[in-house]
Amino acid sequence: MSLRHKLMQKLFTDKELVEGVILGNPKFQKELYSRYSGALFAICKRYAKNTAEAEDLMQDVFVKIFLNLHQFRFESSLGFWAKRLTINSLLNYIKKKNIENNFVSTDEYDNEIQDVRINDDVDVPYEVLLNMVQKLPLGYRTVFNMKEIDGYENKEIASLLGCTESTVRTQLFKAKKELKQKIEKWSQNEIK
């Protein structure tokens, strides 16, 4: 990070930044991008199936942020607003891919849903964990990300994705089961 960026960060609050972007200053645009791109790209990576798709999504997300910035009312922090907007636009993208095939409701696991637990000792690097999440099927991945990492309620997820709550629960359970298997397999390979 250059000295100018550090100065910019100290000099301007979020409010000044937003006003600057609305007035059409390209420097403020760049500053807003560099301030939030890191966190938002991490989110995009989780929801996408690979880095290339994440890059494509990232472009759409930032264009949307800039186009909707004048609607930001300063009721929450800019970071939180940007995160919500990102997830919403990601969900729109996912919905377009004919998600009905990926969210087939099966009630067979409904009664046996429990917490899936793993050993806390294993220290898995971030890249490996990210790869595990990316390799999940679209439905599992979306529900797992929304529920466990971004903290949505089951009800919210069901209404946002247009499926039933039991579907969300089963998808989540299957996702956790698959992730557990993957982590165990990885740790076994590491020990060898």
Binding site: D115, V133, F144, E148, I149, K180, I183
Partner: peptide, 10 residues
């Protein structure tokens, strides 16, 4: 819990 494990890492 596996969700918490991933949350902490991400």
């Amino acid at each position: 819990e596996i969700g918490a494990f991933f949350r902490d890492n991400f």
